[in-house]
Design a protein around this nucleic acid. Structure first.
Length: 135
DNA sequence: GTTCTTACA
DNA sequence: TGTAAGTA
């Protein structure tokens, strides 16, 4: 999951690849949710991580989270490098994001992440269920 | 032509 | 958030 070349991405490409408006992108920047570099002409130079963040922000916003919540939830890129637990936390959040989606039944398992969440983070739910021995 | 900041609705 | 103005 490593990001390759942090090539400079223009505002145009950022808009195209995230589906966000330039207004929204600048606003999220103003809210310190992304930290794009700047060219000599003060133009924003986005990195691949900035793009991923924007997509993440879009998802969290759509899920009803506030800017403040998102800021805390995502922390800063620098913090993630320093704190190993930040990455673990991010992974769990990622799992939860997927698990929030519909899970009709376990057969077939159409959403592995949802199943993983059920088995990993909701022990109480599982204990409440009645499993019939099938083996 | 595109992006940036500031400001108003 | 959209849009207009004046720049770079």
């Amino acid at each position: 999951m490593s990001m390759k070349k942090d090539k400079h991405i223009t505002m145009r490409e950022a808009k195209e690849r995230t589906g966000l408006t330039s207004r929204q992108i600048r606003y999220y920047d103003e809210q310190n949710l992304i930290f794009p570099a700047r060219s000599k002409g003060n133009q924003r130079l986005f990195s691949e991580s900035d793009l991923q963040r924007l997509l993440k922000i879009k998802k969290l916003l759509a899920a009803g989270n506030s800017i403040e919540t998102i800021r805390l939830k995502m922390k800063t890129p620098q913090a993630k490098e320093i704190d190993p637990y930040a990455q673990l936390s991010e992974f769990e959040d990622s799992i939860n994001d997927y698990a929030d989606e519909e899970l009709d039944s376990l057969y077939p398992v159409s959403n592995r992440f949802a199943l993983l969440k059920k088995l990993t983070f909701n022990d109480h739910d599982i204990n409440d269920q009645e499993f019939e021995e099938e083996n």
